[in-house]
């Protein structure tokens, strides 16, 4: 990869300052950025390594809110006893990201900031109506994901934590691309009292909510409630791995399976 300057700031403010040029890039696990740079598709002048900034990793639970530090690795989320107890669907989602070696290094902040259309975390953030906490503000999930690899973050803005409200029930069903193991379609379903949120990743350029499924599930939170509805393929991704019609179909299949899990069925491998 192209040469670049490397900074390892000791605190958040220093990190933000180093990103002020708008071209330098923050990096934590680097599981997406470094492969991109290796393929010479990105050549930032500097990398600002956030991974040693204190206080940005770990899980805390306060009342009905689980706060996950941005530097928490996928593995630490998957195996966090607090998350397993409060939002098991989030833990199991983290446990199917990438592969073990990637989960040991990749972080939730990096994944959410990157907003890869095939990433898993955006489905949880949007499905759980999480709040993205940055160095300067808090952004609601509905306002955070804007498009393909695009979020509401400013170029020098750094995610410090994600705050997840604890749902009454939640489930995540992922249909992997056989080759890349990214989500071809992933559906996160969460019920908060009478309200249901359904977030879909992998199917379109950006994670999105599927409101008609939400409405049906709000009335009847069972897999069978979904057997009679379908979604339109228009706007969904179409590629050699899955055309949009198949993806639309998979959204419904994965939604049913996510509901099954939310109701206590074990996740399918």
């Amino acid at each position: 990869m192209r040469e670049f300057a490397y900074h390892r700031p000791g605190d958040l403010q220093a990190a933000v300052a180093l990103l002020a040029d708008g071209e330098s890039r923050p990096v934590s696990g680097g599981m997406t950025l470094l492969p991109t740079m290796k393929q010479r598709l990105a050549a930032p002048p500097a990398l600002v390594d956030l991974s040693t900034i204190p206080g940005m990793a770990g899980v805390t639970v306060e009342g009905r809110t689980v706060t996950v530090g941005a530097l928490s690795t996928h593995e630490s989320v998957a195996s966090s006893p607090e998350i397993v107890a409060c939002i098991p669907a989030l833990a199991s989602l983290a446990g199917v990201i990438g592969d073990p070696a990637v989960r040991h290094r990749g972080t939730i902040g990096g994944s959410v900031a990157n907003a890869d259309p095939g990433a898993d975390y955006p489905a949880a953030v949007l499905g759980l109506d999480a709040t993205v906490v940055t160095d300067r503000r808090e952004i609601g999930a509905d306002d955070f994901f804007i498009g393909l690899f695009t979020t509401a973050l400013a170029p020098d803005e750094i995610i410090t934590a994600i705050r997840f409200p604890v749902p009454d029930a939640a489930g995540y069903a992922k249909f992997r691309s056989q080759a890349s193991r990214f989500a071809l379609v992933g559906v996160f379903v969460a019920r908060f009292g009478p309200f249901v949120r359904v977030a879909v990743t992998g199917a379109a350029p950006c994670v999105f909510r599927q409101k008609d499924i939400e409405e049906v599930l709000a009335r009847d939170f069972t897999p069978s409630a979904l057997t009679r509805i379908s979604i339109a393929p228009s706007g969904l991704n179409s590629d050699i791995h899955a055309d949009s019609e198949y993806r639309a179909h998979l959204v419904m299949v994965m939604a049913r399976r996510a509901v099954e899990q939310a109701l206590g069925a074990p996740a399918r491998p």
Partner: peptide, 9 residues
């Protein structure tokens, strides 16, 4: 901990 050395600086 196992990690991919091709993707670490």
């Amino acid at each position: 901990v196992s990690m991919k050395s091709c993707t670490l600086l």
